[in-house]
Measured scan of single mutants.
Amino acid sequence: TETRTFDSEEEAKKAQKEAEKQGRTVTITRRDDRWEVRFD
């Protein structure tokens, strides 16, 4: 599991799309003013 933090939802969604192309499961969580993206 890898976790990355982004400043914008746009960036988080971009990372999510990339990871899903690779067949990974992605979870996006809102953390205050940041977006946390978890790759499984």
Rank of each mutant, 00 (worst) to 15 (best):
K13H: 09
S8M: 03
E20L: 14
E20P: 01
E2H: 12
T1D: 11
D7V: 07
D32T: 05
T1G: 12
R38E: 09
T25D: 04
G23P: 01
E2W: 14
S8Y: 03
K17A: 14
K13L: 15
V26P: 04
S8K: 05
T1C: 10
A19D: 03
T5R: 06
K14W: 12
R30V: 07
G23V: 02
G23L: 03
E9P: 04
D33Y: 03
E2T: 13
R31I: 15
R31V: 15
A12K: 00
R4Q: 11
R30I: 07
T3E: 05
K14G: 07
E36I: 12
V26C: 15
A15P: 00
V37H: 00
I28A: 01
R24G: 04
Q16L: 11
Q16K: 12
S8G: 03
F6S: 00
Q22R: 10
G23C: 07
T27I: 11
R31T: 08
F39V: 11
R30G: 03
D33R: 04
Q22L: 14
K14Y: 11
R31G: 03
T27P: 01
K14C: 15
D32Q: 12
R4T: 08
Q16C: 12
T3Y: 13
I28T: 02
R30Y: 10
T3G: 05
F6L: 02
A12W: 01
K14I: 13
R38D: 06
Q16R: 08
K13S: 07
Q16I: 12
K13N: 08
E18H: 08
T3S: 08
E11A: 09
T5C: 07
Q22C: 14
K21L: 14
E2R: 11
E18G: 03
Q22H: 12
T25L: 10
T27H: 08
R38N: 09
D40L: 13
G23Y: 04
R38G: 05
Q22Y: 09
D40E: 15
E10D: 09
R38F: 06
R4D: 03
R4G: 04
T3H: 08
W35T: 01
R24Q: 10
T3K: 07
E36K: 02
F6V: 03
D33F: 03
D32A: 11
R24S: 06
E9N: 02
T25P: 06
Q16M: 15
A15K: 03
A19H: 05
Q22V: 10
E36Q: 04
T1I: 13
A19M: 12
E36L: 07
R31Y: 08
F39G: 04
E36D: 05
T1W: 15
E18A: 10
F39I: 15
F6T: 01
K17R: 13
R4M: 14
T25K: 13
R34F: 13
D40S: 13
A15M: 10
D7T: 09
K14L: 14
V37D: 01
A19L: 15
E11V: 03
D32R: 07
E11W: 02
R34S: 09
T27V: 11
T3R: 08
K21H: 10
V26R: 00
E10L: 07
T5G: 03
A19T: 02
T3A: 09
K13T: 09
R31Q: 08
S8A: 03
R31H: 09
W35M: 01
E20A: 11
E20K: 07
F39R: 02
T29A: 06
F39C: 05
V37W: 00
V37I: 08
E18S: 06
K13R: 13
E36Y: 08
K13D: 05
E9T: 01
Q22G: 08
D32E: 13
K14T: 11
D40R: 07
T3V: 15
E10S: 06
T3F: 14
D33P: 02
W35S: 01
F39M: 12
A19I: 07
R34N: 07
R4Y: 13
F39H: 04
W35N: 01
E9Q: 05
T5F: 15
G23A: 03
E18T: 07
K13W: 11
R31D: 04
D40I: 13
V37N: 01
F6Q: 00
S8I: 04
E2K: 11
T25Q: 10
G23W: 03
T29M: 07
D33A: 04
D7A: 11
E2G: 10
R38Q: 10
A15T: 05
I28K: 01
A12S: 02
V37T: 02
G23R: 03
E2L: 12
E9M: 06
T27K: 07
D33C: 07
Q16D: 01
T27Y: 04
A19K: 02
A15L: 09
T25F: 07
W35K: 00
D33I: 03
E11N: 04
V37F: 02
T1S: 13
E10P: 04
E20Q: 11
A12Y: 02
D7M: 10
T29V: 14
A15F: 15
T25H: 14
E18L: 10
V37R: 00
R34V: 13
T25I: 12
K21N: 12
D7K: 08
R4V: 12
R24K: 12
G23N: 04
D40M: 12
V26W: 00
E11T: 03
V37P: 01
T25N: 09
E10Y: 09
V37Q: 01
R4L: 15
R24H: 12
E20F: 10
F6A: 01
E10V: 08
E18W: 08
D32Y: 06
A15W: 15
E11D: 11
F39L: 09
I28E: 00
S8W: 02
E20M: 13
K17M: 14
I28C: 07
A12P: 00
K14V: 11
E36A: 02
D33H: 07
A15G: 02
K21G: 13
Q22P: 03
D32G: 15
A19N: 03
R38V: 12
A12H: 00
E10M: 08
T1R: 10
W35F: 05
T29N: 07
R4P: 02
E18K: 06
E9V: 06
Q22N: 12
T5W: 15
Q16F: 12
T25A: 10
T27Q: 08
S8D: 06
A12D: 00
A19P: 01
F6N: 00
D40F: 10
E18P: 01
R34K: 15
V37A: 04
T27L: 04
R38A: 10
A15V: 11
E20D: 04
V26E: 00
F39P: 05
K17H: 12
D33M: 04
T29L: 08
R4I: 13
W35H: 01
D33V: 03
K17W: 14
R34H: 13
E36P: 00
I28G: 00
K17N: 10
D33N: 13
R38P: 01
Q16S: 09
E36S: 02
K14H: 13
E36G: 01
W35A: 01
T25R: 15
A19Q: 05
T5V: 15
R24W: 14
T5Q: 08
E2M: 11
R34I: 13
G23K: 03
R38H: 12
F39D: 07
T1V: 14
S8H: 05
Q16A: 15
W35I: 02
E20N: 08
A15I: 09
E36F: 07
F6R: 00
T5S: 10
Q22M: 14
T3I: 15
K13E: 08
T5L: 15
T1F: 15
D40P: 06
A15D: 02
E9I: 09
D32S: 07
V37M: 05
V37L: 10
T25V: 13
T5A: 07
Q16Y: 10
A15S: 05
K17G: 09
T1H: 13
K17Q: 13
E36M: 05
T27R: 08
A12E: 00
T27F: 04
G23S: 03
E10C: 12
K17I: 14
T1N: 11
G23E: 02
V26D: 00
E11R: 03
K21Y: 08
T27A: 05
W35E: 01
D33Q: 07
E20T: 08
I28P: 00
D40H: 12
F6M: 02
T29W: 04
R34Y: 14
R38K: 12
E18C: 12
W35P: 01
D7E: 10
R4K: 11
